[in-house]
Simulated scan of single mutants.
Amino acid sequence: MYTIEDIIYDCPVEALSNILGKKWVAAIVWQLQDTKIRFGELQRALDGCSKKMLTQQLDMLIENDIIINDKKSINNTVESVYYLSESGILLLPIMEKMITWSNKNLVCDK
């Protein structure tokens, strides 16, 4: 059994699909693939993603150990950066395969 946001799934594929299928999640993970980034920088990189939505999705990704929020106190200010955890890094090849499959098998009307 897999629990994501208080929903219980029997199937691990369905549980992961629930995470990656949420709005902005795939874009957030993809944006963090090679870098550590601050919240404001991440929000600017995700044109159209509101602060509230980004906060909610980051919290969910942190809760599921996909993203790490590293906070450091420097001269009475807190510097916070987000980056992929080890399990988040392991998602990247899966996402690449999903992109390849989609490009070959889905019709995209532009």
Rank of each mutant, 00 (worst) to 15 (best):
T3C: 08
T3N: 09
T3I: 15
I4Q: 01
I4F: 06
E5W: 06
I7C: 05
I7N: 08
Y9A: 02
Y9I: 01
V13G: 13
E14L: 14
A15Y: 04
A15R: 02
A15W: 01
S17Y: 04
S17M: 09
I19Q: 02
L20G: 00
L20C: 07
G21F: 10
G21R: 04
W24V: 02
V25I: 11
I28P: 01
W30E: 09
L32H: 03
L32T: 02
L32S: 04
L32W: 01
D34M: 13
D34W: 13
T35C: 13
K36Q: 13
F39P: 00
L42M: 15
Q43A: 07
Q43K: 14
A45R: 08
A45F: 03
D47G: 04
D47V: 14
D47I: 13
G48K: 01
G48R: 06
C49N: 05
C49T: 07
S50H: 07
K51L: 09
K51I: 07
M53K: 07
L54W: 02
T55G: 08
T55L: 07
Q57T: 09
L58A: 00
M60C: 06
L61M: 05
I62H: 02
E63F: 07
N64I: 02
N64F: 01
D65G: 05
D65L: 14
D65Q: 13
I66A: 06
I67M: 02
I68V: 13
I68R: 07
I68H: 02
I68Q: 03
D70Q: 08
D70R: 06
D70H: 10
S73N: 10
S73R: 11
N75A: 10
T77E: 06
V78I: 12
E79Y: 05
E79L: 10
S80P: 04
V81Y: 01
Y82P: 00
Y82F: 05
Y83Q: 06
Y83P: 02
S85C: 01
E86T: 13
E86I: 08
E86S: 14
S87M: 11
G88W: 03
I89R: 12
L90K: 14
L92N: 00
P93H: 03
P93W: 03
I94M: 05
M95D: 01
E96V: 11
K97D: 15
M98T: 13
I99M: 11
I99W: 07
T100W: 11
T100G: 08
W101M: 09
W101S: 10
S102W: 02
N103F: 11
K104M: 11
N105K: 11
N105I: 09
L106S: 08
L106D: 12
L106K: 13
V107N: 11
C108I: 15
C108P: 09
D109Y: 15
K110M: 14
K110I: 14
